[in-house]
Each structure stands twice: as C-alpha cells, then as structure tokens.
C-alpha cells in the first residue's frame, strides 16, 4: 500500500482516484489531455477517462473558469489546471467576482465545488510569468479556500480532498518540488485538508512555511541543529482558512516566530500571521514575528532568482535576528 512517489506522480494518482470515485469530476485545462500537461500531472488520464472528462480547452483562462461555473451549476466538479501561476490573471475576474461569491450570492443554493490547480513559485530558471506566488490575491478573497501542498502524501490526499470539498479551492502545487520523492500510503487516513502540521519539533524558534518553502525551512532547521539551535517547523498547508492553533501552541513555548514564503513580504501571508500571532501570543513573545520572503519587486530574471528567493541562509539569518532580541 505504501509507495515512494514524486509529488507530480502523487497528484496524478490522486486525480485518477478522484475521477474513479466520482463520475462528475471533469478536468479542464490547456494541454492537459494528449500531452498530459506541461508538467505531465495529468499524464495518461485522457487516454483512460476519455476526452469528455479530460478536456484540452481552447487557450482561454477566463473561459476555463467561467465555463467551470456553469458546469458546477449542473452538478459537475470541475478541476481546472492553470498552466503557470502567471497565467491565472485572465481568469482572475471569474475567480474573484464569480467563483468566490456565487455561494454567498445564492445563499448556498449554488455551491461551487471547483478546484483551481496552479503550479506556483520560482526556482526553475524560467522566463517571465512562470515563477509567481500569487496566493495572497486569493487568500484576500472571501469565498475561496487556498491550500499549498509540500509532500507527495499531501499531494495525493490533498487533491482528492480539494475535489470532494464543497467550496472552491485554489490548489497550489510547488512546481520546483514536483520531482521530490516521499512515501504515500494509499490505505492511510489522511490529515484534514484545512489543517497545519508540525513537521519538526523544536524549542527555540517556530518557523512557518508552506509549499516549496517547507523543504527550505527543514533544511534550515537541520543546519541550525548543528549549531545547537532547535527550530520547530510547521507546514501551514492551508493558507485560507488559516489553522493557527498549532502555531500559537508552538509560539507560546518558543516565544519566537519566523514566517517564510516566496511571495513578496508586503501584505503577504506573513503579515496576517504576524498580526494574529501578536494578538494571541503577545505575552509569550520574546521577539517580533519576523518575515522572510521575496522583495517587493517583480520576480527577477532567472539569473537573479537565487538572490531573490528565500533560502536556508536567509531563514537562518532571521532566526539569528529573532534570537538576538
């Protein structure tokens, strides 16, 4: 039952399982059928489920999301692939003004069980628009749920849970980690989709991350341990709603908190988390909540992305600063 899979393959198997379990699941996206997607996440699915369930769409993202709304009204569960993070914006209007609001507008009469899969984040040496971290735009939109997976097991279960969820879910896939491997037990009982998780225990500083930065945070914890510092790493997993109870528990013990994400720091997830941690754990804090993220600039050309993206050293630098208070 337990297999070692890449994140990409785990997503592929999770999608397959969701399609087997529910005939109303329809995959839509550019190049997802015959090609199997530019990252091959849907590889083989059109062959096995047919062109009606794995739809190579016209090149039109507003069309993908707008028609998903209509299909959802007819009881389908559209799973929309956006080819790259930077290309979600033609669909942004449909996502923000329609997908997110229809449940409230209809007082629950029109559920929108739509999944929007987006490979996100940088670090793959790409040209412009292929390395963005747009999660805050979605987290700031009421009516959307937003998750980011970081392991093959979460990818496998998470995509199925997102598809089964009654609300629209923006499902962020850490594209630079698609090839990372891990154990997936298809007989296990998965953790809930909308929950955070302590992935490494520690006492000195609480480090929060999600998606591609979880690995970076774990590497930082490893390096810190060699210097006698014990970092507790929490994989947030869900960005909206946030599940901060495990974070509060941790910060009450460590008194220090560092939030890491690739997205620019200003008004990023770290800002909201810092506010909530401060409001809830004020008397436990030994240092201000610190944020490590992208600079407030457009994502740079790939020759500069290493200097733009948070890495182990920048996480450790923030840890040092936190401990220095």
């Amino acid at each position: 039952m337990t297999e070692t899979l890449t994140i990409g393959k785990a997503l592929n198997l999770g999608l397959r399982k969701a399609m087997e379990d529910d005939a109303k699941v329809v995959l839509m996206g550019e190049d997802i059928g015959k090609l199997g997607g530019v990252f091959r996440i849907t590889d083989g699915l059109q062959k096995d489920f047919g062109e009606a369930r794995v739809v190579d769409t016209p090149l039109a993202e507003a069309g993908i999301l707008g028609t998903a709304v209509g299909l959802a009204m007819r009881g389908y569960r559209p799973v929309c692939e956006i080819q790259f993070d930077g290309f979600v914006f033609p669909a942004y209007n449909q996502i923000v003004t329609q997908v997110a609001k229809i449940h409230a507008r209809s007082r629950g009469k029109l559920p929108m069980p739509i999944v929007i899969r987006i490979p996100f984040g940088g670090g793959i040496g790409a040209v412009e628009h292929h390395s963005e971290s747009p999660e805050a735009y979605f987290a700031h939109t009421a009516g959307l749920k937003v998750v980011a997976v970081s392991t093959p097991a979460d990818a496998y279960w998470g995509i199925q849970q997102a598809i089964a969820a009654p609300d629209p879910v923006v499902f962020l896939e850490p594209k630079r980690r698609y090839w990372e491997k891990g154990a997936v037990d298809s007989a296990a009982t998965p953790d809930p989709l909308f929950g955070s998780r302590v992935v490494r225990g520690g006492d000195d500083v609480t480090v929060l991350a999600y998606g591609p930065m979880v690995k970076t945070a774990l590497q930082a914890a490893e390096a810190a341990a060699e210097e006698g510092r014990s970092l507790e790493v929490i994989d947030l997993r869900t960005i909206s709603p946030l599940d901060l109870d495990p974070v509060f528990d941790s910060v009450r013990r460590t008194g220090r908190c560092v939030v890491v994400h690739e997205a620019p720091v200003t008004l990023g997830l770290g800002a909201e988390i810092a506010a909530r941690v401060t409001e809830t754990c004020f008397h436990s804090l030994e240092a201000p909540v610190l944020r490590v993220g992208g600079y407030d600039t457009p994502y740079p050309p790939s020759k500069l992305e290493e200097e733009y993206l948070p890495d182990l050293d920048r996480v450790l630098d923030a840890v040092d600063r936190s401990l220095g208070f």
Binding site: L35, V38, P58
Partner: peptide, 10 residues
Amino acid sequence: YAISVPIERQ
C-alpha cells in the same frame, strides 16, 4: 498548434 493543441480546438 498552441503547444500540443491543434487549431481545430481553437
């Protein structure tokens, strides 16, 4: 073609 998608799809 648009990547893999033939003109008939557009």
